[in-house]
Simulated assay, not measured.
Amino acid sequence: MTRLLAIAVLTMVAFASNSILNRAALTDGVTGPAAFAAVRTLSGALCLVALCALRHGLPRLFRPGRWVGTGALLVYMLGFSFAYVALDAGVGALILFGGVQVTMFAGALMGGERPHPARWIGAAVAFGGLIWLLWPAGTTAPDMGAALMMALAAAGWGVYSLAGRGAGDPLSETAANFLLAAPFVLLAWLILPDDIGTRGAVLAVISGAITSGLGYAMWYSLLPRIDASVAALVQLTVPVIALAGGALLLAELPTVRLVVASAVVLGGVAFGVLGSQRRIGSSGS
């Protein structure tokens, strides 16, 4: 249980770091979203394939259902990068993982899972915090176009996470998805060309090889061991980590609205995960 918790914490920190790294790269005035996504995906693919080769050989690229995970990863990578042109790190992460929650709860229901009532209540509270954040209120509401791009990324990440629940070899599966997605992200860069500076390239490589590649492999190792609804709820801790990181590293001072919305989201997550475990533990004693 301790090992599982440690993997979950490291994975959530990696997810939050992606938001901070992507936003930091785009603020230099040189690096564009298509370039960042391309370098991020390619560096993730190269790192993961190298690790697979050292461990047991190259990953198996083609298998039934492979394109579901690969396509979802592609949608996420592009939507994520383009959204951060206009969103702060914490706000983007909150929109992303709020949307992921909806996608994964829907997938859990379609897959036959029946979440505990506490998870439903926690999800409703957390999603309510997200709706409040996005509700137009002058200059405090996020840019709607960027928010829609992040919502698209959320759908992609939710499907990618659901596909990972059947991963037999997390490292190999993640490597194959990155390797197949890379040519399409590079094609998007050719169609929508933009520049990349030295600072942006370094941040993209760190995001691709470490916080994305290795982080997603950890996530795929975790997914088969937890319910989809729990996976959805746990990811809602990421925006708060990203919010703190953005404030410390990017000087993105959070508004009162964002802080309160994050507290509501965290409260919903805590109630949904801990409340359902307490109830299950009581019924089994």
Rank of each mutant, 00 (worst) to 15 (best):
H116Q: 14
L4W: 11
A146N: 03
M144L: 15
A118G: 12
V91T: 15
V102Y: 02
L253F: 01
R23V: 04
A50C: 04
V185A: 05
P170Q: 10
F105S: 00
A137C: 02
S229Q: 10
R199C: 09
M77R: 00
L5C: 03
L186G: 00
D28F: 08
G138Q: 06
G275Q: 05
S262K: 00
A86G: 00
G145T: 08
A181I: 03
A167G: 11
A261V: 01
T255G: 10
R63F: 10
R257K: 12
A201E: 11
R40Y: 09
A14T: 00
G111Y: 06
A167V: 12
T103F: 03
I121L: 14
L214R: 04
M77H: 06
A232Q: 03
R114Y: 06
R278V: 12
V9C: 13
P33C: 10
A147M: 12
P254Y: 02
P170I: 05
S212R: 11
L61K: 04
T27N: 09
T31I: 11
A8W: 02
L190M: 13
A45P: 07
T237S: 10
R60H: 13
A217Y: 10
F80D: 04
L61W: 09
S283V: 11
I95S: 13
L61V: 04
R23I: 05
N18V: 03
M104W: 05
A72H: 06
V185T: 12
L58N: 01
I241G: 02
N177A: 05
R165K: 15
F82Y: 15
S81V: 10
G44R: 05
R40F: 11
L26S: 07
L236F: 10
A118E: 06
R40P: 09
A209Y: 07
V234Y: 00
A45D: 14
L21D: 09
M104V: 14
A167S: 15
A137F: 07
L162N: 13
L258Y: 06
V265G: 02
V85C: 10
V256K: 01
G246W: 02
Y76H: 13
A146D: 03
L109W: 05
P239F: 10
L250T: 08
S172K: 09
G92V: 06
D194F: 08
A204D: 08
A137Q: 15
P59D: 02
